[in-house]
């Protein structure tokens, strides 16, 4: 599988992502500067975590208007896999590739800790390596991960199986205390209609190495590699 990571000014989790992609695919991803207008031919485009443009104005808003973005959107529409993690998820909602918005965490604090996620749909190219309903543990690290969409949009997402990951406790219960940021319906990650664009707030790339505390995030990358 060939992959590319788009680098924006202020991106800071590209190293974590690159290390994981290399470990899973055996190939280092290409790093593409946001000022470019064309991506290389790849199977997966990653919009990584960080604070693009300092999160000024709104998280992901300025990055969503950078020169590379029209090509990211075009590739997404043509079926290339696109993964947006954290700040990347924020960019995907800002471009409109994914519905809704990520707002300030309900308690107004940045949160960095391991959370549990319930894999709600394994019939996707991003989650096929997991068991249905499997509970995985990965970290979050964000100040603006509070997923918001109107009720109609939320219902549509649920009805079409596009709520892929939800915050839960270690037994899989969708409780409010397990929800680190106040996201509606405990939503942690969603898919686009075509099923090739995933956005999620947690960092699976930071949980792919037993030395760093676990490997529950590996499945996501193995799924993509298998689908590509």
């Amino acid at each position: 599988m060939k992959s590319a990571i788009v680098l924006f000014p202020g991106t800071n989790r590209e190293r974590d992502m690159a290390a994981t992609l290399k470990r899973v695919t055996g190939k280092a991803p290409e790093i593409v500067w946001h000022g470019e207008t064309r991506l290389p031919e790849v199977d997966l485009i990653v919009l990584p975590g960080g604070f693009s443009y300092g999160d000024y104005l709104r998280c992901g808003a300025i990055a969503a208007n950078s020169p590379i973005m029209p090509d990211v959107i075009a590739r997404a529409n043509a079926g290339t896999f696109v993964l947006g993690v954290c700040n990347g998820f924020q960019m995907l909602t800002e471009t409109g590739l994914l519905p809704g918005a990520l707002m300030r965490n309900a308690n107004l604090q940045f949160v960095c800790r391991d959370v549990h996620l319930k894999v709600e749909n394994t019939q996707t190219p991003f989650t096929s390596a997991y068991e249905p309903g499997q509970v995985i543990r990965v970290p979050v690290a964000h100040g603006d991960g509070n997923y918001f969409a109107d009720e109609k949009t939320l219902d549509a997402l649920e009805d079409s199986g596009r709520v892929v990951l939800r915050y839960c406790d270690e037994k899989g219960a969708l409780t409010q205390t397990a929800n680190p940021n106040g996201s509606q319906r405990n939503i942690a990650g969603i898919l686009n209609e075509a099923g090739n664009v995933l956005g999620l707030m947690p960092h699976p790339e930071d949980m792919t190495d037993a030395r760093l505390g676990g490997t529950d995030g590996l499945g996501l990358f193995e799924s993509i590699a298998a689908a590509a």
Binding site: R15, D16, Q109, F110, C112, D206, R211, L212, G213
Partner: peptide, 16 residues
């Protein structure tokens, strides 16, 4: 306190 600090970025934190 420390949950408000990103202690994982760079992907090398062995002991938190």
């Amino acid at each position: 306190v420390w949950e408000q600090y990103d202690h994982l970025v760079m992907g090398n934190t062995i002991q938190r």
